[in-house]
Design a protein around this nucleic acid. Structure first.
Length: 469
RNA sequence: CGGGAAGUAGCGCAGCUUGGUUAGCGCGCCUGGUUUGGGACCAGGAGGCCGCGGGUUCGAAUCCCGCCUUCCCGACCA
């Protein structure tokens, strides 16, 4: 039965649709202070799954978790000139504490290169201490001009990795390893989003970095979202914080450091990459709830079957929940659709009489009937199919809405609907400035074959330009 | 921070132009009953510092000033 939508349709007003999903899927609420956000239990459970997947990959890459303080002496920031220049406008600074004015104000960390640098300097003495591979899960604060739920909040949750290496090559290789094996692997295989991997142009680079790598995803409205980044920091922070080691020959040298992060912004990316007019679509591998079992009516035989089916799925290792007796069937269906649960398993007397149940897939709307004894295997298969289909859809959107063009003017035109790709030599400098006036930015630079360049000055690079979040 | 819009019950809104008894409506919520194969229905009920502060007035949701917050478009950004 056609209903008036619960959500604003995407093509009517995409930002409004986004807000609706955040609210109706019970992901988050606005906090009382400008730009802050309360992450609700369902939203937080998605974050916990993101954390767990990324954390496993970080550990597989050899880094260890640690925790550094929220407060940083203001003077630390100013030790690295570009870093302080980049971050000062958005710092929250504590000037009073304990009822007194502080002699040195402390900043609430916007990122932790500086404090961690300070401690790396203490911990690194010898080449035997390298590489030093650290990660922390933390909150950071950046007083942004224009907050948006999950995409840009004054306080956000993330992981930030910080490493120190003996050589430029080792640092560069590790930053790339994180970029591919942690970020791209997670984003593609768990989040189901196809991204462009590339390096940032000088103007888009992280403050204090010598090279910034990015994963650029395309959202449902054709705009870009930077979903994770890895930075090579050269010796900038090593020099500012005196991170030195002695090599085999006894010569003292500065380390090369890296940093890399992914944040709760990924949830914004999840919403906008896969969501539709019925709400969120959570990829099966990420979903806190993979299957919701819905009894069509509150009836003894049906409930008994619901329990049996739920147990079968649990035994098969599927994350399953049951929703019974909470209002009408239709209501429960739409509620779980908004939350994006991959599979809805309907149990009703008619099907049951024939020994069947119905599976409904969230992304395609496809419904199939399966025999009770096959529920676990059919569900497992459908979850895998959906995971594959979601990535395929994301891949299709990215390729079909990236236009290869040959001028800045054409790029500007193409960027109204998606991404544009063109030779970097046509854009760098003048073109970049010109595109910026139309809110279009260079998202990343790639080699002609789509691989990641070593630096901006390589010959024959292409660039991808788009409007972005 | 610049340009635009808006803040009235949990959510969405009307009322404001032209100040005047008790501030309404839809959804949601509570109670009881009937329901449940795509947002159920009937009956009864609860819920308001009308964003905050000041001013004008006999009287302010309504007029004036200031501030805060949210949304949209920019500059900034994970």
């Amino acid at each position: 039965m056609a209903q008036q939508g619960v959500l604003t349709p995407q093509n009517e007003d995409f930002p409004r649709w986004y807000q609706d999903v955040v609210a109706k899927a019970e992901l988050a609420d606005n906090g009382p202070v400008r730009g802050t956000m309360v992450i609700r239990p369902y939203g937080y459970s998605i974050w916990e799954h993101i954390q767990s997947e990324i954390d496993q990959r970080i550990k597989a890459a050899g880094a260890q978790n640690a925790y550094f303080p929220l407060f940083i002496p203001e003077s630390y920031l100013s030790r690295e000139a570009e870093h302080v220049e980049g971050f000062s406008p958005e710092l929250a600074v504590v000037t009073h504490a304990g009822g007194e004015q502080l002699t040195e104000p402390v900043v609430v960390r916007p990122t932790s290169e500086t404090v961690i640098g300070e401690f790396m300097a203490k911990w690194v003495q010898s080449h035997r201490d390298l590489p030093l591979l650290l990660n922390q899960w933390a909150n950071v604060v950046r007083w942004e001009m224009r907050p948006r739920m999950f995409l840009r909040t004054s306080e956000f949750l993330w992981q930030e990795g910080h490493t120190a290496h003996a050589t430029f090559e080792d640092a560069a290789a590790y930053a790339r390893q994180i970029h591919h094996d942690v970020y791209n692997d997670f984003i593609q295989n768990v989040l189901g989003v196809q991204v462009y991997l590339g390096i940032k142009s000088t103007s888009e680079r992280f403050a204090g970095a010598t090279n910034t790598m990015t994963c650029e995803g395309m959202m449902g409205d054709g705009k870009a979202l930077q979903m994770a980044t890895s930075h090579e920091l050269g010796q900038n922070f090593a020099k500012a914080f005196d991170i030195k080691f002695q090599d085999e020959s006894g010569t003292s040298a500065y380390c090369y450091t890296t940093s890399w992060g992914a944040s709760t912004r990924l949830i914004g990316g999840l919403i906008m990459a896969h969501g539709d007019d019925n709400g969120l679509v959570v990829p099966p591998r990420l979903a806190p709830i993979q299957v919701v079992v819905l009894p069509v009516r509150d009836d003894e035989a049906v409930n008994a079957a619901v329990d049996r089916v739920g147990d079968q799925l649990k035994v098969a290792g599927i994350r399953v929940t049951t929703d019974r007796g909470r209002g009408s069937f239709g209501r429960r269906v739409t509620d779980w659709e908004i939350k994006g649960v991959p599979i809805r398993l309907e149990v009703g007397p008619r099907d049951l009489a024939e020994g069947l149940v119905t599976l409904a897939r969230r992304d395609s709307g496809e419904k199939v009937q399966v025999r009770l004894e096959d529920v676990a295997s059919a569900t497992t298969n459908m979850l895998e199919e959906m995971q594959t289909a979601i990535l395929a859809a994301s891949r299709h959107r990215l390729s079909s809405r990236t236009a290869d063009v040959t001028s800045v003017a054409e790029a500007a035109e193409a960027a109204t609907a998606g991404f544009a790709r063109l030779p970097w030599d046509l854009v760098r400098g003048e073109g970049e400035t010109q595109l910026r006036t139309q809110a279009i930015t260079v998202r990343c630079l790639q080699r002609a074959d789509g691989s990641m360049p070593d630096h901006e000055n390589e010959a024959n690079l292409t660039c991808i330009v788009a409007k972005s979040y």
